[in-house]
Amino acid sequence: MNTSPGARHHRTLTVLSRHLTAHADVAATARFGRAVPAQLAASFAEAETAFAAWCRAGAEALRPSTMDDAP
């Protein structure tokens, strides 16, 4: 079945946006900081949080509606 380019990009972006949301959830669960001394735990926590924040920002940026509304 042929899919229009518009439908394909919509589907691709939707899937990837969901992927990034899932990655953010994984990053919030698989936390290295739980298993290292306190000082390093704080450093890991910051990195993990920054990673999750990027994932969520990416998920929002890739949502088809956001992409289509972009200038």
Binding site: P37, L40, S43, E46, A47, A50, A53, A57, A61
Partner: peptide, 27 residues
Amino acid sequence: LDGELEPARTLLATLTVGMREEAGRLT
């Protein structure tokens, strides 16, 4: 051990800055 982990802390600090900038670029 805390001393041995210092390079990892430095690397993580650099990574954190890079990832925050990356999120800023996306938004």
